[in-house]
């Protein structure tokens, strides 16, 4: 086998497809996840902790979800996850310190796969995730907004990141007259997508 640095590996090629960034010491979790999800909906990037930041930046504009199995992670990737609407799931290890509060710890592989597939299958107010990337809107249009994609996937749970990260999502909801809105909880400051009253969710 030739010695190929991580930067040269194909997994570091920038890609706009919905990405699950799997951070582990041996790659086993990425291989296992790939077998259990519909790969027309996402690509799984298999990275080691020291490659995580590069993998994050290669997932344009940011990964849809980060799945980790390590008890600690580099500060750089923790900061990136604290400032971008990224779903975070940890499996087989306690949540590393300093992750935003929307990160979830999942004790079993079955729980993890259930969580990923539930997020992929999320629906609200006629919206659902499109194949590849973005959100299919009730009027048949495709919204490529990673913010809206993240909000819809996590709903009804909320993101522990600033409202400013979700401006494009709010714009799309208004422009397409969608019966849902981006909501900031006044007590916690957390952000979620909610269906407006009278609309079937």
């Amino acid at each position: 086998m030739t010695d190929t640095s991580s930067t040269e590996l194909g997994m570091m090629v920038p890609d706009t497809m919905r990405t699950l960034l799997a951070i582990s010491d041996n790659g086993e979790i990425a291989v296992s996840i790939r077998d259990m999800v519909d790969r027309s909906y996402l690509v799984v990037r298999d990275v080691r902790p020291n490659e995580a930041e590069e993998g994050f930046h290669a997932s344009l504009p940011w990964p849809w979800m980060v799945v980790g199995t390590t008890p600690t992670i580099p500060e750089s990737i923790r900061n990136l996850m604290s400032h971008n609407p990224v779903l975070i799931a940890w499996y087989g290890a306690p949540l590393p310190e300093g992750l935003p509060s929307h990160a979830v710890a999942l004790p079993t592989f079955r729980d993890l796969i259930g969580y990923i597939n539930d997020c992929l299958e999320a629906q609200m107010a006629g919206m659902h995730l499109a194949i590849g990337l973005g959100v299919e809107l009730p009027d048949g249009q495709l919204a490529r907004s990673a913010e809206l994609q993240a909000l819809l996937s996590l709903a009804p749970a909320s993101f522990d990141i600033p409202m400013t990260a979700f401006r494009s999502a709010q714009r799309i909801l208004l422009a397409h007259h969608i019966e849902a809105s981006v909501n900031r909880d006044p007590a916690t400051g957390h952000i979620s997508l909610i269906a407006r009253a009278g609309v079937e969710v």
């Binding site: 190929t4 194909g10 997994m11 090629v13 890609d15 990425a30 291989v31 790939r34 298999d46």
Partner: peptide, 30 residues
Amino acid sequence: AHELSDCLVIVYSANVDSFRVRSEIHRSHP
């Protein structure tokens, strides 16, 4: 992956069950 990103790729192997092989293939081309 770098130069022909829109090329569909199918890799066949007698060792496709091997975790190491699968990992190596997908780290080369996700």
